[in-house]
Amino acid sequence: MCLAGPEGATAAFAVTVYARLLGETGMAALAPECRALHAGDGVFHGRITVEVTRNPVLRAALRLAGFPPAVEDAELRFEKRGRGARDVWTRSMAGQVMQTAQWATPDGKLAERMGAMVAMCRLVPAQGGLDLVDWRFRCLGLPAPGWAAPKVSASERPDTGRYRFEISIGLPWGSAPVLCYHGWLDVAQAADEGG
């Protein structure tokens, strides 16, 4: 199966994890901006803001998990590459790099490894984009019980040539998020740098 990518992206490529999970119907439900990002390998540029809790213990835990420090409207370089059954996402911002690996679980969920933690969720097409729902977590290979698992809200939406993303992560017993990041990627000007 070969899906059309953004201008300048690789013409023929392996199907991404997102495309495998969504299938042809799910991919067709995405607006062109979101479909361009999930269709294949490529490099995208945009802006990102990362807001992090002021609690020093939680900040240290987030850094150990591989999350970036707080930045305001920073330049973002986002690269995605297929590696067999996995996709590798590399986000570079304000001199920091965050790299994660993604794959499809046997029960049809997206899994993403961030350091010692694996987050799993379901992809739901919504308003031309996606909502990521039903989050579950494993840490050091062990499932995190519901009372200890982070609360996550995550979505992506199209915005006239841009792919917009918004993610919020909170503690199960708290109301304020400990980490939020949001921004956009210019999918119309994507390039497949360094094939």
Score class of each variant (00 low, 15 high):
96 Q>I: 00
80 K>G: 02
32 P>I: 10
40 G>R: 12
88 V>I: 12
101 A>I: 00
53 T>F: 10
97 V>G: 04
95 G>C: 06
88 V>F: 09
105 T>R: 12
114 M>S: 15
117 M>F: 06
69 P>H: 14
49 T>D: 15
74 A>P: 09
67 F>L: 09
68 P>K: 10
32 P>L: 12
94 A>V: 04
90 T>S: 14
98 M>A: 09
96 Q>L: 00
116 A>E: 09
89 W>D: 14
40 G>Y: 10
106 P>F: 06
30 L>V: 09
45 H>L: 07
107 D>L: 00
107 D>S: 05
51 E>F: 07
68 P>L: 14
59 R>S: 07
42 G>F: 06
43 V>Y: 07
110 L>F: 02
63 R>L: 05
85 A>Q: 15
59 R>P: 04
81 R>C: 02
89 W>V: 06
54 R>L: 11
110 L>G: 00
38 H>M: 12
29 A>L: 07
34 C>H: 02
93 M>L: 14
76 L>V: 01
89 W>H: 15
117 M>C: 13
75 E>P: 03
113 R>F: 00
38 H>D: 08
49 T>G: 15
96 Q>M: 01
78 F>L: 08
118 V>T: 07
57 V>H: 13
39 A>D: 10
50 V>M: 08
34 C>E: 06
66 G>I: 03
115 G>H: 00
108 G>T: 10
99 Q>V: 04
79 E>K: 12
85 A>T: 11
99 Q>G: 01
81 R>S: 07
65 A>D: 04
116 A>G: 05
55 N>A: 08
110 L>K: 01
106 P>L: 05
111 A>H: 10
99 Q>A: 14
77 R>Q: 14
69 P>S: 14
42 G>P: 03
116 A>P: 13
98 M>N: 08
105 T>E: 13
37 L>F: 14
83 R>Y: 05
78 F>Y: 15
112 E>C: 01
113 R>M: 08
45 H>E: 12
41 D>I: 02
110 L>Q: 04
85 A>K: 15
99 Q>S: 13
53 T>L: 10
67 F>R: 02
42 G>N: 05
32 P>T: 10
87 D>E: 15
68 P>N: 04
91 R>A: 03
91 R>F: 03
102 Q>M: 13
28 A>D: 10
54 R>V: 05
103 W>Y: 05
51 E>K: 11
80 K>H: 07
89 W>M: 10
30 L>T: 09
103 W>Q: 10
109 K>S: 03
57 V>K: 14
45 H>A: 11
57 V>M: 14
113 R>Q: 15
48 I>T: 09
103 W>N: 04
107 D>E: 11
63 R>V: 03
38 H>I: 00
36 A>T: 00
108 G>D: 11
50 V>I: 12
80 K>R: 14
119 A>F: 02
87 D>V: 00
57 V>A: 15
118 V>Q: 06
46 G>T: 01
91 R>T: 04
29 A>P: 01
62 L>A: 11
58 L>I: 02
113 R>S: 13
101 A>Q: 05
113 R>A: 14
71 V>Q: 04
113 R>T: 02
107 D>K: 04
88 V>D: 09
51 E>W: 05
31 A>H: 08
108 G>A: 11
106 P>I: 02
49 T>I: 06
110 L>E: 01
41 D>M: 12
67 F>S: 06
38 H>L: 10
68 P>R: 07
44 F>T: 01
116 A>F: 11
84 G>V: 00
65 A>W: 01
48 I>Y: 04
116 A>D: 09
84 G>H: 11
77 R>M: 12
66 G>N: 11
